[in-house]
């Protein structure tokens, strides 16, 4: 019963296009406990997104070589599952929110269509049922006029609104795990807080464990339970949030901390 929602061990990502180059993610491992919010922080380009994409199985084998000791979702290892079974998990048991809200949604389908097709795909819902549920989800992520949002196309919405549609889509099947890749980096400060509040609130409600990728230690302090620090594709430090702020172990962590406090001061 105490197994983690997500267990990663020895995950390595290499580019097959540059065979000699060092691994972009090398031999990282961690446990994401049920219902917790685990932050992954690190400088731009350190490999956070690639880690997330590798866990989701989004890196095409023709360009990326992904090896893992294990990728366990609720105790079952997914690293050897056939593609069809993997697809059943994606968006259902494990979902992801992307860094770029402006381009993450398909421009030629309405937002409602995109959310409800995930529901229909995974839960086998009928069209009307999926529609009702989508509208409820849109309401849950804070839209006052979910009907209108349902009909809107992505380009008619602001970045923050699109990211909330994305959250609705990610949480619609009540996944066990959500990977949120810098969900608010592209948004302005007030929107950031709103989006993160909504996200964490829904996470608590559904018991979803969240891997929150960010480079903002302020966000970490406010929302996360634990935090991992990544440097050049390696996790250099894992700690409870309070401990990290009190006694950072790794020089890189101290540097990250100094940026944040510097920005605040």
């Amino acid at each position: 019963m105490n197994q983690p929602a997500l267990r990663i061990s020895k995950l390595t990502v290499k580019s097959t296009l540059e065979p000699g180059a060092p691994a972009i993610v090398s031999e990282i491992g961690f446990d994401l406990r049920k219902g917790e919010i685990l932050a992954l922080v690190g400088e731009s380009g350190c490999g956070k997104t690639k880690t997330a994409e590798a866990i989701m199985g989004l890196l095409p084998a023709s360009h990326w070589q992904v090896t893992a000791g294990a990728i366990e979702l609720n105790g079952t290892d997914c690293s050897d599952l056939p593609p069809a079974s993997l697809r059943k998990l994606r968006g259902n048991e494990i979902s992801m929110i992307f860094q770029e809200p402006l381009t993450a949604l398909d421009p030629v389908f309405s937002c409602g269509h995109q959310v409800s097709s995930v529901l229909r795909r995974h839960l086998g819902s009928a069209r009307n049922e999926a529609r009702d549920r989508t509208i409820k989800m849109l309401q849950q992520v804070g839209f006052a006029d979910p009907e209108r949002i349902f009909r809107s196309y992505p380009h008619q919405l602001s970045g923050g609104m699109r990211q909330r549609v994305m959250i609705a889509m990610a949480m619609s099947c009540r996944p066990a795990v959500l990977i949120a890749d810098e969900p608010t980096t592209a948004l302005d400060v007030t929107t950031q807080a709103q989006v993160l509040d909504q996200l964490t609130k829904l996470g608590r409600e559904y018991g979803t464990a969240i891997l929150l990728i960010t480079h903002d230690l302020g966000v970490v302090a406010q929302y996360a339970d634990r935090v991992m620090v990544m440097l050049d594709g390696v996790i250099v430090e894992t700690a409870e949030v309070e401990n990290l702020f009190k006694q950072p172990q790794h020089p890189c962590t101290r540097q990250l901390l100094s940026y944040t406090t510097g920005a605040v001061a």
Binding site: L58, A84, E100, A104, V118, R121
Partner: peptide
């Protein structure tokens, strides 16, 4: 494009991606 990655992250099959997302776009 980014939204194709999204579709894949939400369990769309290659067929769905090609016939719906790629073709319509």
């Amino acid at each position: 494009k980014d939204h194709i990655r999204t579709a894949r992250a939400y369990g769309a099959s290659t067929m769905t991606i090609l016939w719906r997302h790629v073709l319509k776009n």
